[in-house]
Design a protein around this nucleic acid. Structure first.
Lengths: 271, 271
DNA sequence: CAAATAGTGTCTCTAAGACAATATCAC
DNA sequence: GTGATATTGTCTTAGAGACACTATTTG
């Protein structure tokens, strides 16, 4: 073991060329949109946090929050730190999406990105009173495939509309990666990262793992169902949804009253 | 755009501290073990490629093949390159397993690892006539959970037996990560990487995506079933397995004869 | 009572597990 | 014929989709 100590003392990593490493986070939130009819339940909108770039490159374009990996932290911790710095919210869960390391992906040089998706509850953002800096905004998201097989990612905030076009490429093990055809106002390769993050999020939502973190601790089953429908972009019959999530939730004693219709029991995530 | 060019000219990444980045690959293969009775079909063994470390740190311990990311390649390309350098086989498919970036994971300094699992057919290894260097060997793998919840990873080659013990930790989105309790002769945090790779591989095998690459282009359904059983560590009734994979394979005109029992039709992966 | 959601019951259909039965070869 | 695998058919069961129905509240 002496020889190992000796070896490490003389060992230097500086001979090798090293990339800069970042963590970029696609932070999602779901916001209820109130209806005209007071009796109707609100519809949901899926939102994604974007930051307007203040400097070059891609100045004034929109990008995912992210930053450089620091010594003494893991890439997961870096992702959590970046999200907290932007939103003042500590997300409960982050989901690894992939590593983006195309040599030419960043004009500043050799920078590889570890991408994560994270889920933030609308309640926690409202409570922390996030300062509405003009350079950080929640964009509503739509992501669909057209007849020709091209994927369209639309992001909207106020009168700002970003529209990226991507091609899906099958890779090994049934995975898909996205190639950017038109980055549509998004910086770097972030359109491809967002597409991958949405795909990962939908995959997780299949087994109800990704949906609870969008909501407060106690929720109605209808609210949970709307979250699921918003993420997966499908519609589900209430009877079937209740049966399917019944194993993942438990009742509380509380009800939501005063909505112009039958009160709904509040549920909690099981275990 | 002039100002962007100007900015990039003066931009330097060298102000930031940067980690070294590696790709480490858990390369799996399945080898048929011939039986006493010539009439019986062979049993399968799951094998993993390990390299004996020639230098410090962890000198003489066993490690996954891997190496430093080079400029002008992606981490996937780096993983493929490393596998090719060790086996002379170009694997068809690699599966991202995760990023391992604990600050203290490598005594040489700040080195983060991108882990991949890959699948190699026994046929391709046999054809390329891999040189049996004593420092690169295929170990048979067993990975199980005991009653107390601890995971045991056993790797065997000839009289070498490595036995690592790990604890599973639930993380967000129903994912599990492994913490090493006893690294059992494996270098660095590679026991945890191997555990994560096996978990990822089993997940992919569920939808029959991971099993075809273990076999040559044409195969019998029984051979395919044995691969599935070996990876998932379960046993399946032949009638049911045939029904389940029927959508993923297509017949050929060829048969395997001379095995002491009814000839089996050869199949091919569909599309 | 009307409008809306909350919640239950049940029929059907599909896919997987279990198992019985038949087919076909080498020796 | 014997012993092995190859292959097919069918009964059962679990879970998801469809849909009809009841329950409860506000205005």
């Amino acid at each position: 073991m002496d020889s190992e100590k000796e070896f490490l003392k003389s060992y230097s990593l500086s001979d090798y060329d090293r990339p800069s490493v970042t963590a970029d986070v696609a932070a999602f939130m779901i916001r209820p949109e109130s209806q005209q009819n007071y009796r109707k339940n609100p519809e949901n909108k899926l939102l994604l946090l974007l930051i307007r770039r203040g400097g070059h490159p891609f100045k004034d374009m929109w990008a995912l929050p992210g930053g450089f990996l620091q010594r003494n932290e893991t890439v997961e911790q870096c992702a959590l730190r970046e999200i907290f710095e932007e939103t003042n919210v500590q997300p409960v869960s982050i989901l690894p999406v992939g590593v983006f390391s195309e040599p030419e992906r960043d004009p500043r040089g050799w920078i590889i990105s570890n991408a994560y998706a994270s889920v933030i509850s609308e309640e926690s953002v409202r409570q922390t009173g996030q300062d509405d800096a003009a350079d950080a905004q929640w964009f509503s998201v739509s992501f669909d495939c057209d007849e020709s097989g091209a994927y369209h990612l639309s992001l909207n905030y106020a009168d700002i509309e970003l529209h990226a076009v991507l091609a899906a490429e099958k890779t090994s093990f049934g995975r898909t990666t996205f190639r950017i055809l038109d980055r549509g106002g998004l910086a770097f390769d972030h359109a491809a990262i967002i597409a991958a993050a949405l795909t990962a999020l939908r995959n997780e939502a299949k087994n109800y793992d990704a949906i609870f973190d969008f909501l407060p601790e106690k929720f109605t089953l209808t609210a949970l169902q709307k979250v699921q429908e918003t993420i997966m972009n499908v519609s589900i019959l209430p009877a079937n949804f209740r049966r399917m999530v019944s194993g993942y939730v438990e009742e509380t004693d509380e009800y939501v009253r005063g909505e112009g219709h039958r009160p709904a029991k509040l549920y909690r995530r099981k275990k």
